[in-house]
Computed example of a mutant assay.
Amino acid sequence: MGTYVLIASAADRDPQVATLVVGDQPVDFNLVLAGSSKLTGVVRDLEGKPVPGAVAVLTDVRGEVVTTGTTDAEGTYGFSGVRPGGYTLAVSADSYRPAAVPVEVVGTGQTRQDVELRPGARLRGTVRVRHGGPLTDARVTLLDAAGNVVGTTTTGDDGAYAFADLTGGQYTLIATGYPPVADTVTVNGRDEDDRDLWLAHTE
Rank of each mutant, 00 (worst) to 15 (best):
T19S: 11
P15A: 00
G75P: 03
E47W: 02
V185R: 08
S37R: 14
P179W: 07
T172H: 09
V103L: 10
R13W: 08
P84A: 06
S80L: 14
T111M: 02
T153R: 12
V187I: 15
V82Y: 05
G81V: 13
V127L: 05
R139T: 11
S9D: 10
D165Q: 11
N30V: 01
G125P: 14
L143V: 05
G86A: 07
L123Y: 04
D60C: 01
L173Q: 13
G41Y: 11
V91C: 05
R83P: 00
F163W: 10
P179K: 10
T184K: 15
Y4E: 06
V82N: 03
N30F: 00
L46A: 12
G159D: 07
R62F: 06
Y178P: 00
V149E: 15
T176Y: 05
G125C: 09
V103W: 05
T68D: 07
D72Y: 13
T176N: 13
D28L: 03
L58Y: 05
S95F: 09
S80F: 14
L58S: 04
D14V: 11
V32Q: 06
R62N: 10
G48E: 05
D165H: 08
L166S: 04
Y4C: 11
G107F: 01
T70E: 15
V42E: 12
G151E: 05
V17S: 07
V32S: 08
R112N: 10
V103A: 08
D72S: 12
L117E: 05
V61D: 08
G41S: 10
V5E: 14
R62G: 02
E192N: 07
Y87H: 06
N30I: 00
L33G: 01
M1N: 08
I174C: 04
A138K: 01
A34Q: 04
A175R: 06
V66F: 06
L143M: 12
P52C: 13
P180I: 11
Q113E: 07
I174F: 06
T141N: 06
A93G: 09
V106K: 03
T19V: 13
V55L: 12
M1V: 12
T70L: 09
R97W: 06
Q16A: 13
H201G: 05
L20E: 02
